[in-house]
Nucleic acid binder design. Structure first.
Lengths: 225, 225
DNA sequence: GCATTTATTTGCGTATACATTACAGAATGC
DNA sequence: GCATTCTGTAATGTATACGCAAATAAATGC
């Protein structure tokens, strides 16, 4: 098991993990305030590791520490979503390009291929949760193949901020059939070593996803997820 | 004055500011280790705010906290530089595009124009320090005009990591005459509202800067700045 | 009754003390 | 002489205590 909970893991790291989990799951709702001492009690530790964890999550953009008001779970507006998707578009396109340039073997592209297969399956079964998970893995793996650790870190950060919003929009948006088509084309370009195509097609893919998502958010007046 | 040192500023914030300053100036050299207690004594405060500051600077990529070894000032290799410039290239190009789309007035572009003028002056006077400062301002203002706070934050972060390296390469590199030409072209495209041109020209500008800088670093075996 | 001032409370920032743990070096067994 | 275990120490991780400043409640003057 990976549950080295009270064991090797420091309290600070546990706090980071647990708080992040609670934020992403909505247990700590966007826009709500929480005293350091409350959180400390909830997680069964003192304020010190809570503060340290909060500091880290603050620089990851998940929350904000305001003197006397407690830590505030940051909501994500549709404007925020535009900002985030703009960044994801640029950096993931770069990753796609670099992955295509790297000339990976079929073997090395196995995870990417697997996630595409899983998305296809999920669509067939109309299992949106499964699709979302596979989609997440596809993008994560794509970025990993891009070979830029900093890009990886930034994309992971942005993805965290997006995750809550996606949970909401997942069941409003149209079935992502077109999306799967895009993934296949990008994959093809990478495996055939065509950087420009990979970059450009992935870019278009992301721009469409952004337009769709922000469109939904604005239409439904979902403004602080 | 902006020196609200012991006054309104908390110790943690002072520590962030001072440590950052010490790292960028080289007073805390890349690759060196420093105990929390040492730093605390140096800055005249207890370990608590030092730890909090270190945590923040860690997530900005300037240092690393390793159990028992102290705080390590992260060196920047030429590979790191490639990663960073790849990101700067993408995000600044986006900013240039967005700035051109925004249709700013001459007035709103004053800072940008001013920094270009300063660079011209600096080149004429062969004052490289002054040129670097104006160049920094140009890029910072460009990103600000792009109107994406997150891009601004990321670029600022990456710029911090680059700064030490530039101090070293500044006097090895050729006089940045071509660079100034590029800035003018990008500025022109922005003021005339031509997003594609702004984006593409700035992209080329950055790619050339990257090639030049990484070339120098590798040639001179400067591998941990 | 309203405004202004004064208490009081509450939560954070920071210092400090303590527990923990990884490493170094000594000591012991073989 | 080598490996192994033991023990001491140094630096971190965490709890706790306390002062202070801000927010709220109470009280006083008008």
């Amino acid at each position: 098991m990976k549950d080295q909970d009270a064991k090797t893991l420091s309290n600070t790291k546990r706090a980071v993990r647990d708080l992040r989990r609670m934020i992403l799951s909505g247990e700590l709702a966007a826009g709500t305030d929480h005293l350091e001492s409350e959180l400390a009690e909830t997680l069964g530790m003192s304020r010190t590791p809570i503060r340290e964890a909060a500091l880290m999550l603050e620089s990851k953009g998940l929350l904000e520490m305001r003197p006397r008001k407690g830590v505030r779970i940051l909501p994500v507006s549709s404007d925020d979503m535009r900002e985030i998707y703009d960044i994801l578009t640029e950096l993931e396109s770069l990753a796609a390009q670099r992955a295509a340039e790297a000339g990976y073997s079929v073997d090395e592209l196995a995870v990417l291929a697997g996630s595409i297969a899983n998305m296809d399956q999920a669509i067939e079964a109309e299992d949106l949760e499964a699709w979302a998970e596979a989609d997440e893995l596809f993008h994560q793996e794509l970025v990993r193949l891009g070979g830029n650790k900093r890009v990886e870190a930034i994309v992971a950060m942005m993805s965290d901020q997006v995750r809550r919003a996606r949970a909401t929009t997942l069941f409003i948006r149209p079935l992502p059939v077109k999306s799967n088509e895009d993934h296949r084309v990008v994959f093809q370009a990478i495996s055939e070593g065509r950087p420009d195509t990979a970059r450009e097609r992935h870019r278009e893919h992301r721009l469409q996803a952004q337009a769709m998502l922000c469109g939904i958010l604005e239409k439904h007046r979902l403004n602080s997820l």
